[in-house]
Computed example of a mutant assay.
Amino acid sequence: MMKNIILITLLAGFGFNLNAQPLAPDFTVTDSDGVEHQLYQDYLNQGKTVVIDLFFTYCPPCIALAPTLEDFYESWGGGTGDVEFIGLSIMNDDFNSDCAQFKIDHDVSYPMVGIDGGAIPAVQPYYSGDWGPFEGVPTFVVIHPDGTVDFDPSNGVYDGPGVTGLLEEAIRETGARKPYHLTGTVTMPGGNAIGSFDLNIEGELYSPGQMLPGGLFELDILLRPDSTYEISAVKSGSYNEGLTTFDMIKIRKHVLGIDNFQEPWKYLAADANSSGGISTADLIQLTKLVLAVSDNLPNNDPWGFIKTDYLFASPANPYEEAYQGDARTYMF
């Protein structure tokens, strides 16, 4: 066929007063699984946000909050993305073995640290009042990648949705990206899949995983939840892929007014020189491709993409909308 035009559909799988205060003090702790955690080296210096959960294993509000907090932790990537949670016990009789049992009993997956893992020295600075009064547990400390501390953003709220709502706002303030699962379909106009391609998200190229039947794709990606992203599809390849003499006949009939195109994508596919129209100049360039005299279109890309649900204002004149408008781009 002519220059390839692809149809694409995307779906989404989807007050703090930080005055001049000291930065978060560094700490090194060993959690109940024997894993060492250094606040700055392992997290902040890597651009990550750290949420400290000050708790103890027999604290009733901590126990009640555990399931909601675990779901919230997973919604931010479960430690694989831009955010990590670390539970630090404030009690001298809470050992790593107690923390391990707490994790088992309440299905908690984020790291937890007892007295023998170094929790008390790590907790001690937050009793000082430098970031606000410590009034008991659970208390949360959200630490930005630059070391800035947002102390107790939940402000004494202990109900699950209230706590996670306030923590969500505090984490977003750090600039952390949240995991999103994008799904969509990319097909030829007839419904056939196109094989591999990339998604261009704000200038960065991402390759979806394995393509599924029907052109379905999936992509897991980190995005800032308060931002708007421009998403489009791109594909490299041969300019003459699928191009035949039969396409030349169709274009010639259109140019002569014998059999005009009806679908916008055909107008765009035949506009070989991106001039905003179809003429003998396009026929000449495409014929050179068919005859292997040329292997490219100087003013065009080998593949073009149109949103499946896009309605052109003028289907017989789709050029400006496709080349300069939003016919090819999703805002997410």
Rank of each mutant, 00 (worst) to 15 (best):
N4H: 13
L11D: 15
G13K: 13
F14H: 15
F14Q: 15
F16T: 09
D26Y: 08
V29C: 05
V29Q: 00
D31P: 04
S32E: 10
H37Y: 07
Q41I: 07
D42P: 06
L44D: 03
G47D: 10
F55Q: 02
E70R: 00
E70W: 00
E74D: 14
G77A: 06
T80R: 14
D82E: 11
V83I: 08
S89C: 07
D94G: 04
H106I: 02
V108K: 01
Y110A: 04
M112H: 03
A119Q: 03
Q124G: 09
G129W: 06
P133K: 13
V137N: 02
V142L: 06
V142W: 01
T148V: 12
T148L: 08
D152C: 11
Y158I: 08
D159T: 10
A170E: 03
I171H: 00
A176H: 01
L182C: 04
T183F: 10
T185E: 12
T187N: 15
T187Y: 07
F197L: 09
D198H: 12
N200G: 07
G203H: 10
G203E: 10
L205P: 03
Q210A: 13
G214P: 06
L216T: 11
E218L: 12
Y229K: 08
V234Q: 12
E241R: 11
G242C: 11
A270Y: 03
A270H: 03
D271F: 02
G276P: 05
G276Y: 04
S279T: 15
D282M: 06
I284C: 13
V290T: 13
D295N: 15
N296I: 05
D301L: 10
K307Q: 15
Y310V: 07
P315Y: 05
P318N: 08
F332V: 14
